[in-house]
Simulated assay, not measured.
Amino acid sequence: MQILGIESSCDETGVAIYRESAGITAHQLYSQVKLHGEYGGVVPELASRDHVRKTIPLIKAALSEAKCQPQDITAIAYTQGPGLIGALLVGATIAKSLGVAWNKPTIGIHHLEGHLLAPMLEENAPEYPFLALLVSGGHTMLVDVQALGAYQIIGESIDDAAGEAFDKTAKIMGLDYPGGPLLAKLAEQGDDSEKRFPRPMTDRPGLDFSFSGLKTFAANRIAAANVDGQEPSGQASANIARAFQEAVVDTLAIKCKRALKQTGRKRLVVAGGVSANLKLREQLAELMAQMGGEVFYPRHEYCTDNGAMIAYAGYCQYKSDKLDVGHEIKVYPRWPLSEAV
């Protein structure tokens, strides 16, 4: 069995092939970072056009990498949502068209389920049940995962996601797009002389997140460091970056600890773009060691949007007989994970 996976939810075109007996046999990824960098953020129309240009060549490259032909593909999985509607339509249209041309079934995949299952591609894969922290530019949520398709959201962001707060703060600091990873890199040069940043919503019960106020606090500290219209010094910027990152990481760790105690889980899965953050990985590893549990991550290339996670999720759905019916093209720009089962 071989599943072709297509990811096109935002600004990265990902194509991969998952083979039941061998795992991922092809992984192709094209990032639009340079395209959108000029504008300081993703331009949806440009993203859609670039997916049109890149998806078919990447599919051809993936087939060549996996040394297989279209007739060897069992089914085609694609990201059905959530995401940018134009970008989603490109991937869905191509998947459905190939399904007709190759006489193969298609499988619409929830983008967040793809991230959630990405650690399953590692040699040390977690067993069900587990607690999942999905943390990216668009989403921050805690999910109690009882089994494949059995997902209960027990906490989520009520405004900016953690990755979004990273990117917006980096933009205020004058860092290039995408700024989150650059801010994390700058934080490595900081010291602890900067004023302590708040850990939002940790002084009250509950598992929800809020990072909008933290972003505003950072903006005020950046403005305070701007003397006589001059940009903050390199060290001042690094100190602010460090204080901001520590606040985000501490907040995520505190909420994870609460959720682990509430659910009784001993396994923690961390996925999404921010899961690549080294400070977050270090702190959550310490937390799980203290709690006698274990933490699982996807490898770095599977943290951001990619076709491998869609191909694997497609394999899981195919095994569960969850296939698209008919040739109608449907995408869901807003699609709660709880409704994907």
Rank of each mutant, 00 (worst) to 15 (best):
G206T: 12
C256D: 01
A225L: 11
A225V: 10
G174C: 03
F244R: 15
R196S: 10
Q230T: 12
A161G: 00
K215N: 06
N239S: 10
L284P: 02
A224P: 11
I172W: 12
E194D: 05
G155Y: 08
L175H: 10
G149D: 01
A223H: 09
F197M: 14
S237M: 14
I158A: 09
Q262D: 14
Q283R: 15
V270N: 03
A219C: 07
L260A: 12
G234A: 08
D191L: 03
P198A: 13
E246Q: 05
Q235F: 02
P181F: 01
A289M: 05
G149H: 01
G180T: 11
F209Q: 07
F209P: 02
L287C: 01
I254R: 05
N226E: 14
A285Q: 12
C256T: 05
A170I: 13
I222A: 06
G180C: 15
G272P: 05
A243L: 15
L175K: 15
S193W: 09
D208W: 03
V269C: 06
L278A: 11
G264E: 04
R196Y: 06
A219F: 07
N226L: 09
L280K: 03
K261C: 10
R267K: 06
A170T: 08
G155N: 07
V269F: 00
A187S: 07
I154H: 07
L287D: 02
L287P: 03
K266G: 10
G273F: 04
F211E: 03
Q189R: 05
D176F: 04
A150I: 13
L284W: 00
E246L: 02
Q262V: 08
L214A: 05
P178T: 11
A165G: 04
P181K: 07
K255I: 12
V274N: 04
A165D: 00
R267N: 04
D208G: 12
S237G: 06
S193V: 08
E282T: 00
E164T: 09
I172C: 15
K255V: 11
K279C: 00
Q152P: 03
V270H: 00
D160A: 11
A170F: 14
V227C: 02
Q245H: 04
A150H: 14
A271D: 10
K168W: 15
N226Q: 12
E286Q: 06
A223M: 10
F166Y: 15
Y177C: 12
Y177V: 14
N277K: 08
R242K: 15
T251K: 10
N239I: 12
N220P: 05
